[in-house]
Design a protein around this nucleic acid. Structure first.
Lengths: 242, 242
DNA sequence: CGATGTCTTGAAGCAGTTCAACCAGGGTGG
DNA sequence: CCACCCTGGTTGAACTGCTTCAAGACATCG
C-alpha cells in the first residue's frame, strides 16, 4: 500500500526484506517501512530441512514464522502415535496463533524450506497497534478454516480414490503461488505423509496412485514428479462438482 | 467493557438486547451502547425450527447471525448428496464470514433455536470502525479453526468407537455455556446427523452407542437424553490422552 | 389404531487395512 | 567396482471394521 520511502533513512525497508515473498504478498505487506524495520530487528531467516520442526505440539509459542520457500505441514499426533496432517502451508503463509500461548499442533517442514522467524512479542505489539495486520491474520484464519472444513468433507465422506485425487488437486492448486493450476509439480509429501493427510495407509495411497496412473489421469516419475494429464477428469475423480 | 449509559437517551442499550446472551458473552459485548443501538435497528430476532436453514450453501450472504439459543450445524454437501457436518455452533456463537460474499456451507438449526439476524452491511461498517469487533471475530475464527483441526484428527484417524465417544465428549463440553462438563444433556443431533458429523452410517453409530451403554460409560433415555456415567473412561474411549 | 419416522439389531458384502514379500535407487565401505 | 544395506515405494493375499441391505422395535401422532 505504502511505497518504500527513501528520504531520511527512517523509512527505508530493511535490505533483507527487499526480495522477500512475504514482503510482497505475505503479512509484511501490511506494514509500513518503519514497522518493517522494527520487526526485522526481531526476525531471522532460517533454512530448515525436511522433518525439522518449526513448532512442536504442546510447546510454548515464542515465535511466529513466515514461510518464504517450501512446504510446511501441520500435524496432530495422538498418544499412541497415530498421526493426522491437518494442514499444508505454502509460501507466503503465516504460521502461528496470536492469542494462544500454546500450540496444539506441530509445524514441520515437508520439503526443504525457508522461514522468517519473528519474535512473538514484537509481532503481538504490532498487531495491537496496526489494524491492517490483524485484518491480514484474520483473513488467513478464515481461509485456513475454509480449507480445514473442505478437508473434513474429504476425510469423512470420500473414498480412497477420491481422497488421493483430492490431494493431487490440492497440491496442484497451491504449490505455485503465481498460477491457479500447476499441471506438473513435485509432490511435497512422502506416501506416508499423504496417508497421514488422507487418513489412509501408505499401501492404499500407493494402490490408488497406481490406478490413477493406469487410467491416464496422471503420470509419475521418480515417485515424486507428478504430471496431471487430464485436470477435468482428476477434478471429477476428486468428487468436485458433477 | 463499557457500562450501559443512562443520561441523554443516546447511550441506552436497546431493550431487546438487555437480556440477550450475545450481549453479555457474544460479539455484542464489544459494542458501545450507541453501536448496539445502531446495529439493533438492522437486526431481528428469529426463532427457527430444527432443519430450517439460517444460510444456504452457495447462497449469497446478506446477513450474519448470532445464536441466542439452541444448536446450529454447519454442513457441506457433495453433488451426489453425501453430507458432512463440519461444525456445531452453540450460543452465543457468531455465524457468517466477513470478507467473503458467498457461503461455502449451509447453516441449519439442529434443535429449536433462536438467532439474532444482523444486516451484513451494517455489521461490516461496524467492523471497519471498531477494532474490538474484528478482534472478537478473529478469535472466534481461531477457535473454530482449532476445533476443525481437532475434528480432522477424529475423522481421519479414529475408530468408530472413538468417534462416537468423541462426539459425546464434545457435546458434553459445549452444550452448557456455563460449565465445563455437562454430565447429562439432550443430544442435539439425530443418529443420521451424528453419522454425518463422524463420517459413519447411522447403523454404526447406533451399534457403538449400544456398546458404550453396555459398558456402562453412558446411559441413554428416549434416544436423546444422555447421562455420562464415567467421564474419564469416556475420555479414554475417545482417544484423548493416555 | 394404523401410519410414519427414528432407532436398533442381524447377516452378508466389501473397501481399506494388515502382513509380508519384493523392487528400485542411492549411499557406503571393502 | 561390486556387495551390502537402507529407505521409500509397490504389489499380493488374507483379514476385518465398517457398510449395506433387510427386518423388526419403539415412539409419536393423526
Amino acid at each position: 500500500m505504502e511505497a518504500v520511502r527513501n528520504d531520511d533513512g527512517v523509512g527505508i525497508a530493511p535490505v533483507i526484506c527487499k526480495t522477500c515473498e512475504a514482503r510482497h504478498n505475505g503479512i509484511c505487506r501490511a506494514l509500513t517501512p518503519q514497522q518493517l524495520g522494527e520487526l526485522s530487528r526481531h526476525s531471522t531467516r532460517k533454512a530448515i530441512r525436511p522433518g525439522a520442526e518449526v513448532q512442536g505440539q504442546g510447546e510454548r509459542v515464542v515465535s511466529y514464522a513466515n514461510i518464504l520457500k517450501g512446504v510446511v505441514k501441520l500435524t496432530k499426533i495422538m498418544a499412541d502415535g497415530r498421526q493426522q496432517i491437518v494442514g499444508l502451508q505454502f509460501a507466503p503463509d503465516f504460521i502461528g496463533r496470536p492469542f494462544s500461548a500454546e500450540s496444539s499442533l506441530a509445524a514441520e517442514a515437508a520439503t526443504d524450506a525457508e522461514v522468517c522467524l519473528m519474535s512473538k512479542s514484537a509481532l503481538d505489539r504490532l498487531v495491537a497497534s496496526t489494524p491492517g495486520i490483524e485484518r491480514y491474520l484474520h483473513i488467513q484464519a478464515q481461509v485456513e478454516l475454509e480449507e480445514a472444513r473442505e478437508w473434513m468433507l474429504t476425510l469423512g465422506r470420500k473414498t480412497a480414490r477420491e481422497k488421493v485425487a483430492s490431494l493431487l488437486y490440492l497440491v496442484s492448486t497451491h504449490c505455485d503461488p503465481n498460477s491457479d493450476h500447476a499441471l506438473q509439480f513435485e509432490l511435497p509429501l512422502t506416501r506416508q505423509e499423504i496417508g497421514d493427510f488422507l487418513g489412509l495407509t501408505i499401501e492404499t495411497v500407493s494402490r490408488q496412485m497406481t490406478k490413477l496412473r493406469q487410467e491416464k489421469l496422471i503420470e509419475v516419475e521418480n515417485n515424486r514428479q507428478v504430471r496431471i494429464l487430464d485436470i477435468r477428469r482428476l477434478q471429477r475423480a476428486a468428487g468436485l462438482e458433477t
